[in-house]
């Protein structure tokens, strides 16, 4: 399961972290995304994906959405989740899936 999206340490984007960890086979991820027509930069230990907001996908399973728009980050997460079969995000505590800490 992914924790709710939250702002990264410098507040420049939203990050999604899987708990328990959900490591990626980046080569397989790249293949899936490119088949879906999504541009991917392959830096071997991480991928950078153009998905509306740019998304960094690390081997360890962390996703970083380079946008300060919470809704755009959440939409990009859902798209990735559907494409890659990722675990679900934690249920909303109230009216939002996006945390602020």
């Amino acid at each position: 399961m992914y924790r709710r999206l939250r702002l990264c340490s410098n507040h420049g984007g939203y990050e999604a972290i899987a708990d328990p960890p959900h490591p990626f086979d980046l080569r397989a991820v790249k293949t899936v995304l490119e088949k879906a027509g999504i541009p991917v930069v392959d830096a071997r230990v991480l991928l950078i994906v153009s998905l509306g907001p740019e998304v960094t996908i690390s081997r360890a399973g962390r996703l970083l959405f380079k946008t300060r728009d919470a809704r755009a980050a959440e939409e990009a997460f859902e798209r990735l989740r559907n494409l890659l079969g990722l675990p679900e995000m934690q249920a909303r505590p109230a009216d939002s899936r996006v945390g602020s800490d």
């Binding site: 990264c8 410098n10 507040h11």
Partner: peptide, 11 residues
């Protein structure tokens, strides 16, 4: 101001 940290920094 807000910004994304360098993602190339190793663990």
């Amino acid at each position: 101001r807000p910004g994304v940290c360098c993602q190339a920094v190793p663990d």
